[in-house]
């Protein structure tokens, strides 16, 4: 069973695409929604972003292929979503080997060990990011690149930001950010998270095509704003509630990661609670802990509770 090459089906006849690919229109729509963001990101930070996503997608695909061949099953299209997401939630300057580690760990520990598509408890891309975030803080929190939109195509990688402070750290230290810059992506950050207007557009597309749950997005973002508002009263935080959700990867994670249909709860009522858990834990972590990127852990914590929420909601409605 353990990595026996003869069973991996790596030899002889190459199967046609249809034979080993599971068709998933839902996942395809997520990919479509991610592509403009990828394009913007390339124009903002340079071609390195494209290479990052190619590496992450390649690694994810390869590991999933190996595992699914072992079980003689089809590859899910979801693996491309995971691959794209991993590439987009890492900073543009992330060394390629870290991108590969993030993808590998994410897809292996986040998905395959649970039995592949449809069985994973956690969002694989977030698992990968959390792993490298804790492992290599130097590369993931200290180096940021200048936004150069739309001149990114001239660069391999846009010049490095000299001041050490990232928008999130600036936010923590209480400086006011230019909101328009935030919204239009004229900021540094992880590759895919900067263009808020594209993320909002993608959110509408995904909601209208019934791909993503608006309840999850709304309750995640809403609870973050709500808790930020509450924390403002005793003066614990002093930034604007809109900045709270416009900065960092909050919006990106809320739209693309929290709504992942596999790791989110399935019951409608549970989705509200799920978003609430993500939003509240993200705000608490970003405000009080040493990690400035709380939404990542927020989503993972939310994932942990998703099955429980489903059970809770269905047992309650069953009693009625």
């Amino acid at each position: 069973m353990f990595l026996n090459p003869s069973k991996l089906g790596l030899s002889r006849e190459v199967p046609s695409l249809k034979d080993f690919m599971l068709k998933q229109p839902m996942m395809r729509r997520v990919i479509i929604a991610l592509l403009p963001i990828l394009a913007f990101s390339i124009l903002n930070f340079g071609w390195k972003v494209l290479i990052n996503t190619l590496v992450s997608t390649g690694v994810c695909f390869f590991i999933e292929y190996v595992f699914e061949r072992m079980k003689k099953k089809k590859i899910s299209e979801a693996v491309f979503v995971t691959g794209l997401l991993v590439g987009l939630i890492l900073p543009p300057s992330t060394p390629l080997w870290i991108v590969a580690v993030a993808s590998g760990i994410g897809i292996f520990f986040g998905k395959e060990v649970f039995g592949g598509f449809g069985r994973n408890v956690f969002n694989p891309a977030m698992v990968g990011r959390a792993f490298v975030y804790v492992s290599f803080p130097l590369y993931l929190t200290a180096k940021w690149n200048l936004p150069v939109f739309p001149n990114g195509f001239k660069y391999w990688l846009s010049p490095e930001l000299t001041t050490g402070a990232t928008p999130l750290e600036v936010l923590k230290s209480g400086e006011l950010l230019k909101r328009l810059d935030l919204f239009f992506g004229n900021i540094s950050g992880s590759s895919g998270e900067t263009a808020k207007w594209l993320i909002v557009a993608a959110a509408f597309y995904l909601i209208l095509t019934k791909t993503a749950s608006w309840k999850i997005i709304l309750s995640t973002v809403g609870s973050m704003m709500g808790l930020t508002l509450i924390l403002q009263l005793p003066g614990i935080v002093n930034y604007n509630v809109f900045d709270a959700v416009l900065s960092g990867g909050v919006l990106f994670a809320a739209v693309f990661m929290a709504t992942d249909p596999i790791s989110a709860p399935r019951k409608e009522a549970a989705k509200w609670l799920y978003g609430l858990i993500i939003g509240v834990s993200a705000t608490i972590i970003r405000t009080f802990s040493l990690f400035s990127e709380g939404i990542m852990f927020g989503v993972l914590i939310g994932n942990t509770f998703a099955p429980l929420l489903d059970v809770m909601v269905s047992s309650r409605s069953g009693k009625k």
Partner: peptide
């Protein structure tokens, strides 16, 4: 070589131990 900080922390033992267990 870049040190993998997470390997120093307890959570990584879960990852490593589970792989050893699997093998």
């Amino acid at each position: 070589f870049v040190n993998w900080t997470i390997m120093i922390m307890a959570p990584s033992a879960f990852f490593v131990l589970s792989i050893v267990l699997w093998i």
